[in-house]
Design a protein around this nucleic acid. Structure first.
Lengths: 240, 240
DNA sequence: CGAACTGTTGAAGTTCTTCAACCGGTGTGG
DNA sequence: CCACACCGGTTGAAGAACTTCAACAGTTCG
């Protein structure tokens, strides 16, 4: 199945992929005229694994909406240390910022498809539509709450807890709550940089969790063998 | 000087404290009628150090705007582990959430003064005013970018780097960029829980930095003795 | 004055990292 | 075609950074 065939020819705004962020989030808020405007400014993009959407320091000239694939969002330090800030999934926005330059790098970890909107007109359209603005507000506010959760994870969780919390939250984010098998398209390095660990610690923790019967490791995925113990490790999810 | 005298009698909305978040952020966007409405729904609060504004799990019935003082925002785990998510300063909003319960606890570090707005009417007012909504959007988006910076700090910085970055960013946030003396109203525990360290490590790192001539420790404050070395430690600030 | 609290310091311990080797899969060029 | 390099992942051993446990000093406060 070709990626282009699956998604690109269909207009995201008119009839398109139901998972594009603009469709699910913004379209219901827009008038016919606005949809048309959005449609005309939209460009479809397909990129392969390891290709960049935008890079830390780039002029933030476009806003993106992921329709297919998984995109890693990360920050880099001059000495090469990396912090993965998140993994974008279909329906997520990328490149939203008030700065005129990106503070983050976005790189596809799978072949992906995106809609790209020129920043100025996009902002203008959203800024002019109060319903769209409210939706964007809710999205960013929720992302901020998730970021707070991540701070707890990075600052106070042990390696075991980080890994368990990552697995469960990643599964949830993909809408696979009940399912045992959790596909992991990202590399060990990506997971390590997401959790503030090294690849070796990620690998060791995986095998330790496997030996203790919590998970089963398969190439490209992990099976949650013991839901209860996995959930118990991911402490924070139990709080509220 | 009494706190009440300094702030409370003056209407925040009408002529009030220039540092209240509602004033600096929202008022310019509002009509006379809206200012009046905001004024009528507003309640002034003064609280002492260690008093709570709201608590993790509380119904999110109000939105706050800090006018005086410093408020610690943190998350708690059932076993007592804590992650400080940030320190609110005058002009900051507190309690903004899309959830109906707070996921964070807000506790005053100093005697503080706040404006409290009932959540429903406040949301309604902001949601109905496109200029206000745009401002809120920009604020939350910027906070999200700061959260990303914090993730890097928590996940990839050493203790030295964390401390240096904290000192410099805290100074900047207070608008004291040039000044050598950085007041630290928060406890060592607060700093530790902000940086994902223990109080002992915070203390040891402070004394190590002092012995190496980077800072001078005074009760309730730290003097930046060597700007260059302090900045060099706070690596990430140099990136972009 | 003593209790409680905050902050500092020392010594020992743990967790995670670093360095290094190795394994299997993939791709490439002689 | 096969040798070889390369890449992602795993594992072991040694080391470092940070934590834990413990003691103590200085303040504040009843």
């Amino acid at each position: 199945m070709s990626l282009a065939e699956a998604v690109i020819p269909r207009g995201c705004v008119e009839r398109g992929s139901p998972r594009c962020g603009v469709c699910t989030t913004l379209l219901p808020a827009l008038s016919e005229a606005e949809r048309g405007a959005l449609d005309r400014m939209r460009k479809h993009l397909t990129i392969g694994a390891k290709e960049l959407v935008f890079s830390q320091g780039d002029a933030a000239s476009r806003v993106y909406s992921l329709s297919v694939g998984v995109v890693r969002i990360h920050k880099l330090l001059p000495d090469g240390r990396r912090q993965v800030v998140g993994f974008a999934l279909p329906a997520d926005f990328l490149g939203l910022t008030v700065q005129d330059h990106h503070a983050l790098t976005a790189e596809a970890i799978e072949p992906s498809a995106l809609c790209a909107f020129p920043r100025g007109p996009f902002r203008q359209l959203v800024d002019g539509n109060i319903a769209a603005l409210r939706r964007m507000n809710a999205i960013v506010t929720q992302e901020l709450a998730a970021a707070h959760e991540r701070m707890m994870m990075l600052g106070r969780y042990s390696a075991d807890e980080k890994m368990a919390a990552f697995l469960l939250s990643w599964r949830t984010r993909q809408g696979m709550q009940g399912l045992r098998n959790v596909p992991l398209p990202m590399s060990r390095r990506d997971i390590a940089d997401y959790l503030g660990l090294t690849i070796e610690t990620v690998s060791r923790t995986f095998t330790r969790l496997e030996k203790s019967g919590v998970i089963e490791i398969t190439p490209g995925a992990v099976r949650i063998a013991d839901e209860n113990r996995a959930a118990a490790l991911a402490t924070a999810s139990l709080v509220h």
